[in-house]
Amino acid sequence: MLKEKPLLKIRELTCIFGIGCSKCNSSTGPLAGTNICSYCGSIVACADVSFDLYDGEILGIVGESGSGKTTLVKCLYFDTPASAGEVYFRAYKDGKVNILALTAQEKRYIRHHLMGMVYQDHHDGLNLDFTAGGNIAEKLIAAGTYHVGQIRSRAAELLQRTEVPVARMDDLPRFFSGGMKRRVQIAKALANNPPLVLLDEVTTGLDVSVQARVLDLIKKLQRELRLSMIVVSHDLGVIRLLTNRTMVMKTGRIVEMGLTDQILEDPQHPYTQLLVSSII
């Protein structure tokens, strides 16, 4: 097979909350059964996370609450500073620089031009005092689109694409339903045609019919726009539906990684077997 260069290359990404010490890594993890360092009390949210993501691929991250899934994507989106590790993103300088070591200005460029993020909590992803159109405009303006007409037409196009009634473009998202808020977030994430979209618990808190519509929408958009995605979820149904490959995390470490059907049908790690057997 012709070796394809990954879109995203992550090596030993670590995020520690607290002062950290030399024993943080060895005293935490699945074997220790905790992610709190017994020596310095720091929380090792994720450690030694390494993986590649290819073009058009959807990678799922599953794991119990507190396993470091959200922290990992927040590190990639520069919301949370990583403590160690390297990330190479092919869309930026052909993947030759570690994007975690860039200046704030360069990170801002990547965040607004080359990545999109849908947060679990809409308070993180949307400014509820701005209109739906205004929220999308924020992302467009950050990437250098200042023409009001262009902004409005792009916002309308995105809202239409994400199945939000365009007539509600000038309404505040605080008056939207949960599913609509999620869709506005998706529209905002896609505003500048990023090659990579990060989705954090995208269906949590939605009723099943809305969940299905949001998932179908994501699948459709991913196919049409050939997006690469990282999907964080604790719902194995979401993972089965959306992803090609899955990574299982526990206490901040990757315990297993494989093709999604392999993870679900032939899990190797004891924790993954427990997780798969817990499907209701």
Binding site: G258, L259, D261, Q262, E265, D266, Q268
Partner: peptide, 9 residues
């Protein structure tokens, strides 16, 4: 079959 298709490791 599943091993060849890689559903099983």
């Amino acid at each position: 079959l599943k091993c060849i298709y890689r559903t099983y490791t």
